[in-house]
Design a protein around this nucleic acid. Structure first.
Lengths: 114, 114
DNA sequence: TTTATATTTCGGCGGTTAACGAAATGAATT
DNA sequence: AATTCATTTCGTTAACCGCCGAAATATAAA
């Protein structure tokens, strides 16, 4: 049986919350997220796999990129509840604002490959 | 500024979820909870202090005992949302069922002092 | 089929946390 | 005041987790 706390565990890391808020704006690939969070690519990949495993996000292969998107139809109703009112649960601060700006202007071809 | 993830951290431990569900039935003192969870008294006290710090529960001195109760009026709206629909968020399993039984029959004078 | 690029997986390091028992605190009873 | 009992705080240990870089995998381009 699945551990009831895993959904909360997934949400208990600030960087994962930032990722969710960013994906709410538009789909992003790993290196775009890496560029904004300023973490190692492998670390970002780990976070994404946690969010995917819990059902918060989905991945879509797109050529050599992997786009991650907010899961539009989560099985777990708690997940959809969190996702449909993300702002209520996670709120908004200076970091989110700055992230939002970067998400809108980030260029995949520019930030990938370093 | 308060870390947005602490509320999820508080909920990411199975024993703390069990405590919340138990307190939903009735106020309990530390050693009653200790008796049901089968943990060291100090460990239970730690869990309670986390839940109290986040605003999920309150303490009420009662002679030599300290009763813990679900916070009836949390400041943080996310906390009240979780608390008013605990079953939705935490669900219910065999352990909770067994806990519930024990909560109803536990006798403070019997289990304290060992 | 080689090369380049994006991502995942692996191994390891450092910080965090749940667990415990022992010691300290606080509050009632003697 | 001394004792007893419930609880908290402290110090320690073991497990876990986020992070990184390196190696492995996957896909596109040459």
């Amino acid at each position: 049986m699945k551990d009831k706390t895993t959904i909360f565990k997934a949400l208990s890391d600030p960087n994962r919350l930032r990722i969710l808020k960013m994906l709410q704006i538009k789909p992003l690939c790993v290196c775009e997220i890496r560029d904004i969070l300023q973490l190692a690519t492998s670390t970002v990949s780990q976070h994404l796999s946690v969010l995917k495993k819990e059902g918060f996000i989905l991945e879509e292969k797109d050529g050599k990129w992997v786009n991650y998107i907010i899961n539009p139809r989560p099985v777990d109703r708690r997940i959809s509840t969190v996702l449909t009112s993300l702002d209520f649960w996670i709120g908004d601060d200076a970091i989110n604002e700055s992230d939002r700006l970067k998400v809108k202007t980030v260029d995949r071809l520019e930030v990938c490959g370093r």
